[in-house]
Design a binder for these strands. Structure first.
Length: 327
DNA sequence: TCGTGTCTGCTTAGGAGCGT
DNA sequence: ACGCTCCTAAGCAGACACGA
């Protein structure tokens, strides 16, 4: 048997106060005496009251839901995307918001629909391309948005991400500091660059800048994720550039395969990876952490600030840190 | 079988009213 | 006079009762 849900009116009756008093106790938007507050909260607990989300949205003009727009496109590493998603959901809960997940199936219509129907109060977008079709749509919305990543033209937008350009430079600096003169970058799958995905391109451009600035020699290659593809790519790289002694891997799915291939070929390259800590820990690799937890939390915090009508910085770049692990 | 009217979920601002 | 609490109305959409 399905019980009817308890309403705010029943809580008010139980506690012997007005409905509006219960509402103010729960929202904290007006001063309520400690004694009344205690009685109300006792009644809420005793009756097992949860506000009806529809009625709350109707009255407050807020859904208390944000959208996470996560395309799940080819070549993206799902476990890392899930770290971002988990962090966004957890952070949103701490602000009393829930998260609606929008994928790419619906294209930009999903964004328009979720915003125009007041299904969500604001949006967080991930996997940003340099010329992302979603960006012009965002500029037309009245709902606040935050991007995890940077499009080519970020004017008027709020963007947050790891400074991948600095990460590329940091990896080169680390290997150069350890005496390497010829360094290679194995990056994301080719399709990711072709789409113009910002983080992949920015790492590559930071890498190239640092190589040039230090007068080193470097080569950057895309890298697929399957073992056989990685093996072919690594072999080709070492055949074409036999002097390479340092390797930057910005492809979390390929890290293990790269190391296996180097062992198989008995080549002693020094490797730095840009990847989550668990992967680097397992392989005892120096690495630059992708701070998914921190980025997700910051994206939500910025969105909540915008929802309150406060100004926020247009651009937040988290500085990369390199963790050295002795093999 | 229509159309009409009433009710329900909740929040919020502004002002009324109560007790001390 | 002050601190606290209450009252009110609006907003949407579906459910329901009622009379013609």
């Amino acid at each position: 048997m399905k019980g009817r849900d308890v309403t705010i009116a029943e809580v008010a009756r139980h506690a012997g106060v007005a409905v509006s008093t219960v509402s103010y106790v729960l929202s904290g938007k007006r001063a309520i005496s400690a004694e009344t507050r205690r009685r109300v909260l006792d009644s809420v607990r005793a009756l097992g009251y949860h506000p009806n989300a529809g009625a709350r949205a109707l009255a407050s003009k807020r859904a208390n839901v944000i959208a996470l727009v996560l395309p799940l496109r080819a070549g993206m590493h799902v476990p890392v995307l899930m770290q971002f998603a988990t962090s966004v959901v957890t952070a949103a809960r701490s602000f009393d918001h829930d998260v609606l997940l929008l994928t790419a199936d619906e294209g930009t219509d999903g964004i328009r629909r979720a915003a125009a129907s007041a299904l969500v109060d604001g949006l967080i977008l991930m996997d940003i391309e340099e010329h992302d079709e979603r960006v012009p749509v965002l500029r037309e919305l009245s709902e606040p948005t935050v991007l995890i990543g940077f499009p080519a033209d970020s004017a008027g937008l709020t963007c947050v991400d790891l400074d991948f350009e600095a990460a590329g430079k940091l990896c080169v600096a680390h290997l150069a500091g350890r005496g390497h003169r010829e360094i290679a970058l194995l990056g994301a799958p080719a399709v990711v660059y072709e789409r113009g995905t910002g983080f992949a391109r920015r790492t590559r451009s930071g890498f190239a800048d640092a190589i040039e600035a230090r007068g080193l020699s470097g080569v950057a290659l895309p890298c697929e994720e399957g073992f056989d593809d990685v093996r072919v790519t690594v072999k080709q790289l070492l055949a074409d550039h036999p002097q390479v002694t340092g390797l930057v891997v910005h492809n979390e799915a390929a890290v293990g395969h790269v190391l296996a291939t180097l062992r198989e070929l008995d080549r002693q390259l020094e490797v730095v990876a840009i990847c989550p800590d668990d992967i680097a820990d397992r392989a005892r690799l120096a690495s630059v952490l992708i701070p998914a937890e921190e980025v997700g939390r910051e994206a939500v915090r910025l969105l909540m600030e915008k929802l309150e009508g406060r100004q926020v910085p247009a651009s937040t770049l988290l500085q990369p840190r390199l963790t050295y692990r002795r093999a």
